[in-house]
Each structure stands twice: as structure tokens, then as C-alpha cells.
């Protein structure tokens, strides 16, 4: 299968304050050796709880933040080694939709300029035509060209943000919690829109979200992150039907199911993920990062880090308890 995007050993470390003169400075490993691929037209869901590094992965791929290490290949070109202006040549092919449509649109620009900002060297008429075309595609009326973002509801703003991202016909769209700020009835509209656009424009998505149900709905494959690392990757159906990593199991069990009759085995994970400065202080660089909360952890889990093993077709798990096939 051809790869559209390949991420190899991506790392992003942030320094923790309070290190005099930089000696003995601690680092938070926000993203720690993350690798995955996305095929053309494929949607990879990236799930995890807050602080697990999923947003940092998305932004590092676009080089909106500079990764500490690792490589990102887009259609075979290593974007991490590109200098200055050359990065920009790739940006039209890789776009992003952010979570909060209230802060991601410039309040002083009208829709025409917001959506058409990526166009260079085209006449005003051409720009208008293109913008109107893309607005219709996302379900907005062309009459809004000269309106400002504050005149729109959250759902409409998110449609504008999507229009802006797809104007240049990207091959990869990174959706960073793109539907999380919306009410359920509007959220469903935007999810359906994203699914429609994916089919029409043959785009690949990296769909970053904390909401497992949404990710399940839109993704072909899902990667589960915990404290900067990918714990499990599998095709969507497989992951939700047969989660193998203990963390994935707990995560799935924690989602409330809208059915009062549904009596599930109640799995409640104890403890909390150690983050930020606490994390740097308490984190031992050996062992599995989930071991402190894992009820199945053995001595070995605290001593060595488990490798990512293949447990089935396209199913990889980072856990000693899972036997490789």
C-alpha cells in the first residue's frame, strides 16, 4: 500500500522550568517515539486523554512546532529536514482544522478573505468563484462572503474553518478535536460533512480526538496514545471489538453508553496520568509508562519497556501481556 504520510520515531520534548543555568534540566516527553503511516484516502483516528500528546503529534507533522527528533515523510519527502520556504510548498497539501472555531478564525477578516487566504496570484473574481464553490461544498450560502466570524454560530464557524482548509484541495487534513466544541446535533452534522468531503475529494484524515465514539465513527484505523506513546494501533472494528492493551480496555469501558439496560462489567481505572513537572519528576525512564496504573502490571513491566508487537493483521500492541503472532 502506498503511503501518503509516514511518521517515524517522532519526538517532541518540552523543557520543564526550574533548572538553574540549564543544568540537570528535565524534559517532558510530550511525544515519545511515535510512528505510524496513513495511506491516501485513509482516516487514522488518534485518541487519548488530555495531555497524552495527540495534538503535539498533529502540529509536529505540519511543523507548526519543531519536533525534537524523528522523521515525517509526506509522499516520500522528508519534511522535517526541509529548510525555510520549502516547508511552505507542502502546506497546501496538508491542512489542519482546529478545535475552537471561536479562536481559530481571525475576527477582523471577512469570510471571503478567511477562506481565500491561501490563494495567491489570482484575480478577485477567480478568488470569489473558488471561495463560493468551496462554501457550497461545506453547506454554506454564498451570501456570507462579506460577513465576519462573530456573526456565525459555532457549527457555521467550523464549516468556515473546514472550507478554508479544503480550498487548496489538500491530500491530508489534520482534524484536531474538530468537533469537540460542538453540541451533539451540530457535531453530527459536521461529522457527516467530513465523511462526505472525504469521499468527494479523496482526502486522508488524521482525526485527533478524545471522544472514542466519534473516532470510531469516522476512522478506518485507530491509534491509542498514552503519555506520549502509541499503545495500540488497529483497524477500527478490530480495536473496538477486541481491544488488547489494558489501557484501551479501560478507556473503552469508561465511556458512558446511552442505554440504561446496558449492564457492562464496570471497569474503573484507578489513579491518574502523571503529567507536566510531576511527570518529569516521577517518570522513570524504564518500564511501561502505563505500569503505575495498570492492574495487571508485573515486575517486568516496571523494569523494561515493552516493544510494539504485532497481534494480528494491522494490529499492534505495546504490552508484554500480549503474545505476538
Amino acid at each position: 500500500m502506498a503511503k501518503l504520510l509516514e511518521v517515524k520515531d517522532l519526538k517532541k520534548y518540552f523543557p520543564v522550568r526550574s533548572a538553574p543555568l540549564g543544568f540537570g534540566r528535565k524534559w517532558v516527553k510530550a511525544v515519545d517515539r511515535v510512528s505510524f503511516t496513513i495511506a491516501p484516502g485513509e482516516t487514522l483516528g488518534l485518541v487519548g486523554e488530555s495531555g497524552c500528546g495527540k495534538t503535539t503529534v498533529g502540529r509536529s507533522i505540519l511543523r507548526l512546532i519543531e519536533p525534537t527528533g524523528g522523521k515525517v515523510f509526506f509522499k516520500g519527502t522528508d519534511i522535517t529536514s526541509l529548510a525555510g520556504k520549502k516547508v511552505r510548498l507542502f502546506r497546501p497539501k496538508m491542512q489542519i482544522v482546529f478545535q475552537d472555531p471561536y479562536s481559530s478564525l481571525n475576527p477582523r477578516m471577512v469570510v471571503l478573505d478567511l477562506v481565500g487566504e491561501g490563494l495567491h496570484g489570482v484575480s478577485l473574481q477567480k478568488k470569489k468563484d473558488l471561495v463560493v464553490g468551496v462554501l457550497e461544498r461545506v453547506g454554506l450560502s454564498p451570501e456570507i462572503l462579506y460577513h465576519y466570524p462573530h456573526e456565525f454560530s459555532g457549527g457555521q464557524r467550523q464549516r468556515i474553518a473546514i472550507a478554508r482548509a479544503i480550498l487548496l484541495q489538500p491530500e491530508l487534513l489534520i482534524c484536531d478535536e474538530a468537533v469537540s466544541a460542538l453540541d451533539v446535533s451540530i457535531q453530527a452534522q459536521i461529522i457527516n460533512l467530513l465523511i462526505k468531503l472525504r469521499q468527494e475529494m479523496k482526502m486522508a484524515y488524521l482525526f485527533i480526538s478524545h471522544d472514542l465514539a466519534v473516532v470510531k465513527h469516522i476512522s478506518h484505523r485507530v491509534a491509542v496514545m498514552y503519555l506520549g506513546q502509541i499503545m495500540e494501533v488497529a483497524p477500527t472494528k478490530r480495536l473496538f471489538a477486541n481491544p488488547l492493551h489494558p489501557y484501551t480496555k479501560f478507556l473503552l469501558a469508561a465511556v458512558p453508553v446511552p442505554d440504561p439496560e446496558c449492564k457492562r462489567e464496570r471497569l474503573v481505572l484507578s489513579g491518574e496520568a502523571q503529567m507536566g513537572a510531576d511527570f518529569a519528576r516521577t517518570r522513570v525512564d524504564e518500564g511501561c509508562c502505563f505500569a503505575p496504573r495498570c492492574p495487571y502490571a508485573e515486575d517486568r513491566c516496571r523494569r523494561e519497556e515493552p516493544p510494539l508487537v504485532t497481534a494480528g493483521k494491522g494490529h499492534q500492541v505495546k504490552c508484554f501481556l500480549v503474545k505476538s503472532k
Binding site: V184, S185, I186, Q187, A188, Q189, I191, N192, D211, L212, A213, V214, K216, H217, F240, L252, V255, V257, P258, D259, C262
Partner: peptide
């Protein structure tokens, strides 16, 4: 309109 873990259905917004 709520995406669910326990069912496979298209969302009707």
C-alpha cells in the same frame, strides 16, 4: 445524532 460505541449506524443529524 450521538455516535455510539455499541452500535454501527450512520449519524442522522
Amino acid at each position: 445524532s450521538i455516535p455510539r460505541l455499541d452500535k454501527e449506524e450512520a449519524l442522522a443529524a
